[in-house]
């Protein structure tokens, strides 16, 4: 009875958590007016692309008689090619993402979830197939997939710093990595190498907390990672500021060069920035990655 009640309570709490994220992501993506989705060339699709004069070899049933009746020539009606692309999203679920330096700031993971889901919704609306990397969610389209994604996004990983998985990288697909990229860069390097080998284009979004960007600490301090596995003690934190900022800049530069080498796009944002502008950047970047 008691256990049942707790389970039920947890389930309800879990269920009630979903809609707000979904609604927020939905509202966020609702502000976007989708532009061209087609491939801008003739092919198999629903939308009209162009009439072209019939050429030898065209089947008769392809001739658009209504158009042809208006002139002496015969025309074939071509439709715009529509291909759904496979896009895989990887969101870092490591405990380092559960950090915010001020009560009014959102946690990094909070922003990451919102962005992931909003991108998924947008892409789904644009007819693309979206999946989650590392969660055993292969790319699919439809509302059900979105629901699965929103559930899967709630899961956290045990590790301190997550790294993108190299398996399940779809050939010729696109990928989106969202993380703080504060852990080792080895896994990122491996993942990008695999992606480049498989012809996967993608976007890498680094989410940082303002405190991580500014290092506003002073005095004698013991810094601990969120999971507690790393610690560093200093007698004068202020003294470390410049060297820390140098290292951070190095890290960013390294990620950027990795991306450039693999032909990926790299962006760095902070949790206090407007989610809409981040989404806008993200969407444009993914669109761009599509069109390559």
């Amino acid at each position: 009875m008691n256990a049942g009640a707790t389970l039920r309570g947890r389930a309800e709490a879990e269920a009630s958590r979903l809609p707000p994220l979904f609604i927020r992501a939905d509202q966020l993506s609702g502000t976007f007016l989708l532009g061209e989705h087609g491939r801008r060339r003739a092919g198999i699709g629903d939308d009209f692309w162009q009439y072209r004069p019939a050429a030898p070899g065209d089947e008769h049933r392809n001739i658009d008689w209504r158009r042809s009746a208006r002139s002496d020539m015969q025309y074939v009606r071509q439709l715009e090619l529509k291909i759904a692309r496979n896009i895989l999203i990887w969101m870092d679920g490591g405990s380092s993402m559960r950090f915010s330096s001020h009560m009014t700031f959102p946690e990094k993971i909070d922003r990451a979830r919102l962005l992931s889901l909003a991108v998924a919704i947008l892409l789904n609306r644009a007819g693309e197939r979206v999946g989650l990397m590392g969660m055993d969610l292969p790319p699919k389209c439809g509302e059900t997939q979105l629901a699965r994604i929103s559930v899967a996004l709630e899961q956290m990983e045990e590790t301190e710093y997550g790294g993108p998985p190299v398996e399940h990288m779809p050939a010729n697909g696109s990928a989106l990595f969202i993380s703080d990229f504060l852990g080792s860069t080895e896994s990122v390097r491996d993942a990008l190498a695999t992606a480049a080998a498989k012809g996967v284009w993608g976007v890498m979004l680094q989410l940082l907390d303002p405190a991580e960007e500014a290092f506003p600490y002073r005095g004698r301090t013991l810094f601990e990672s969120v999971g507690g596995s790393y610690a560093h003690e200093t007698a004068n934190a202020y003294d470390l500021q410049n060297r820390y900022l140098e290292r951070l800049a190095e890290r960013k530069a390294e990620l950027k060069s990795l991306c450039a080498a693999a032909g990926w796009q790299y962006g760095c944002f902070h949790t206090t920035q407007n989610a809409r502008s981040m989404l806008l950047w993200l969407y444009r970047a993914i669109e761009g990655a599509h069109r390559e």
């Binding site: 504060l182 004698r220 601990e224 990672s225 969120v226 820390y244």
Partner: peptide
């Protein structure tokens, strides 16, 4: 000496190895 202040800080990985 004064006791240190404990702080959560994910970017501690970037601090490792820095000396006062």
């Amino acid at each position: 000496p004064p006791a240190p202040m404990r702080r959560r800080f994910p970017a501690v990985t970037l601090l490792l190895g820095l000396r006062d």
